[in-house]
Design a protein around this nucleic acid. Structure first.
Lengths: 237, 237
DNA sequence: AACAGGTTGGTCGAAACCGTACAGGAGTGA
DNA sequence: TCACTCCTGTACGGTTTCGACCAACCTGTT
């Protein structure tokens, strides 16, 4: 296995590590493929590795007692899956899987903990990342409670666009509906509205971002705060 | 100021500390009153103390760019306000204030950090608490996205009941509406339904819990997961 | 060329929820 | 006692979203 150099890494958390910290982690790192619908974290099962995404999109999903589900977190090259490990937990009731396939770099949880124990700037970096996730989640709560489908959809597409860095995003209406927790045909309808405003172009299995500014406008105040906090604390994407 | 003894403390986090850890914190602790609507955390302003609640109920609220707000967290004697400090941040865009007045014990943030640095079981305790907050928040997202007002109201009353340990809870329809992010009259209507089911009795300014089991039933799967995780990780209430 | 499976477009009535408004009651202070 | 404020009950029309459906369509496989 070729060794992994910090300069060649896409993941923003790995990049944000100081070189000496990266060196500590480096021997334990391993590049892995992350195919569509593969799981990085299963509910209530011990998590052995954290996955620093290089490409693709991961979704963290929560489930209630009566099997309702919704997306509660979004992971791309700006983050990692398995954030509960940062909080010294080996299990969580939530699950994480790839919504859009990609690849990543994984590290054993023990190596992450060693780094956090021995290097406080790195510890703070990861803790701050947890805070960003929490903020993102807070704004999902806000979005679900106070905004309509059109605004939430625009927000979701923006968040996805941030993470995939592709104008052609491989997404289906059905997938979007599951993430947003709404009806599939509701998504279809609102995609048409966004398309009518020339913000996007939707074709079978893909959503093409045509005018990001327009999309921002249509998301209202629903998008933004967590993103600003991320760039303040961890760095611009 | 009389010194504070661990045995006499109501707060579950302070109680869960090992005695030697409590001793480290003890000289910095200070009992304070927490009147209705007082703020413990202001948005984007430096937080000097964390507040371990002894009684009353705190609400963490998020706000979007266009001034929509919603409750994203609930704090009572089981937790503390200022959880972002555990993540080594001195500010957060969210705010925390007392929804029901009470009292608490505050500690300087620096003392909290010292304890977390020098005593890893305490560090883990606080990190686990952050995880519980995150989980609670995740389920608020889920509730707002997938459950109707009646179920969300029942969930909120249960969470409040857990934290206040009072059957007569001082709450107004207006206050509930703001927390849930719905119309005031929607709350009135659903309180009547809960009352019709003999789960509660609502009088001016108070909601009386009459049949908690009934309330659990009416909340559906909307309530429970975060609470179970709290008792697993930190201890039964 | 036919087929199967996944994806999209669209419809229907029903239900939930909203914004707004107003009136009456309960508590509070002058 | 009166005036005032806060809280609660209730109503209205209008909008959003749901649940359930079906038809059409695209894409790769047989």
């Amino acid at each position: 296995m070729a060794s992994i150099e910090q300069g060649a890494v896409q993941n923003r958390l790995l990049r944000a590590l100081r070189p000496e910290a990266f060196e500590m982690l480096q021997p334990t790192l391993e590049r892995v493929g992350l195919p569509l619908r593969s799981f990085q974290v299963e509910a209530n099962q011990k998590t052995g590795h954290v996955y620093f995404l290089e490409s693709g999109l991961g979704s963290v999903v929560a489930r209630t007692g009566d099997d309702e589900t919704i997306e509660i977190g979004h992971v791309g090259f700006e983050g990692l899956s398995g954030a509960h490990c940062i909080l010294r937990l080996d299990t969580t009731p939530n699950q994480t899987f790839m919504q859009v396939g990609g690849e990543g770099i994984r590290a054993p949880v023990a190596a992450l903990h060693r780094l956090m124990d021995e290097h406080s700037p790195s510890r703070d970096l990861f803790l701050h990342y947890v805070h960003c996730c929490e903020l993102q989640l807070a704004h999902s709560t806000l979005a679900n409670g106070r905004y309509n489908i059109g605004e939430r959809l625009a927000r979701w597409l923006l968040m996805c666009h941030d993470r995939l860095r592709l104008d052609d995003m491989p997404l289906t209406h059905e997938g979007l509906a599951q993430m947003l927790g709404v009806r599939r045909s509701g998504v279809t309808e609102h995609l048409h509205i966004l398309e009518g405003a020339l913000a996007i172009k939707a074709t079978r299995g893909t959503v093409h971002i045509r005018d990001r500014a327009k999309l921002l406008e249509m998301a209202g105040g629903c998008y933004g705060t967590p993103e600003r906090e991320y760039s303040r604390l961890i760095g611009a994407l």
